[in-house]
């Protein structure tokens, strides 16, 4: 990506920042929402663990709380590429013209315009605060290497998932409205809230290779905690998936643009 493109992305992020922070009450409410939302999952796990002798298949409350915080962090990363998820709507409404006729890479302009910089920062701050509080309060032993590995797997998992969802959105060029198809994919994401290593092995495979939600929750958390074996396996899987889906996305985008037409466009 050229320097000019980075500058453009930065400016869009700054605009989104101002756009959201100008409404102060809403800004504070959103911050509160992130904390309350995580608190609700903490309450869920607390309720469940009350009935299961404080452990669930080897997972304790602080570990499950860290899992919830990682889920929030993955949502924060997704805010930077939320434009991918809105792509199908723009295709259906013929709104791609304005990006195609600008002297910038259309995909970058489309993504940049939808960046939720402030929401991302709010969610990352909330996730960081909760993660720190849980680790300090429950004295969770951590090492810099494990923390780095956990965060790297999380980033790769987020990128892979967004690219897959981007590919689904691009299929709108052929299939029309695919919002429910994307919603279906989002439902698979419900697995991210729970430790997937509790589920049958075949399902763990699907949730790692096909719908890689394991790479944004269970596996990075286990790497973060220094549990579950070598993190290199998950890093390699994450990298392979990102490369594969990047190539698929590029190819679909190239073919899709040739198909695109809009009324008066």
């Amino acid at each position: 990506m050229s320097r000019r493109s980075w500058k453009l992305l930065y400016r869009f992020a700054a605009v989104s920042f101002r756009d959201m922070s100008v409404f102060r009450t809403d800004f504070l409410m959103s911050l509160l929402h992130n904390l309350v939302y995580q608190g609700i999952f903490f309450a869920f796990w607390k309720s469940v663990l009350t009935f299961t002798a404080s452990r669930l298949g080897g997972w304790t409350f602080p570990e499950l709380a860290i899992l919830s915080s990682f889920t929030l962090a993955s949502t924060a990363v997704a805010q930077w590429l939320v434009g991918l998820l809105q792509l199908s709507q723009k295709i259906l409404e013929g709104d791609l013209d304005k990006y195609l006729c600008k002297p910038v890479p259309p995909l970058l302009a489309l993504l940049g315009e939808s960046v939720n910089g402030l929401a991302s920062l709010q969610q990352l701050t909330s996730a960081g605060l909760l993660l720190t509080a849980v680790c300090l309060y429950y004295r969770v032993p951590l090492s810099p290497g494990n923390v780095a590995a956990g965060l790297l797997i999380l980033s790769l998992g987020c990128a892979a998932l967004l690219l897959i969802r981007g590919c689904i959105a691009l299929s709108a060029f052929w299939l029309g409205d695919v919002s429910r198809l994307n919603g279906l994919f989002q439902i698979s994401g419900e697995f991210e809230r729970y430790p997937i290593n509790l589920f049958p092995v075949w399902l763990q495979g699907i949730l790692t290779w096909v719908v890689p939600v394991g790479l944004i929750s269970t596996w990075p958390v286990l790497a973060f905690l220094g549990k579950g074996g070598s993190p290199w396996t998950w890093l390699a899987i994450g990298l392979a998936l990102v490369l594969f889906w990047s190539l698929v996305f590029r190819e679909i985008w190239r073919r899709a643009l040739r198909r695109y037409e809009s009324f008066g466009g």
Binding site: G176, D177, R180
Partner: peptide
């Protein structure tokens, strides 16, 4: 209206 949506 959209078939892909109904399948989903």
């Amino acid at each position: 209206h959209f078939r892909a949506n109904v399948i989903a």
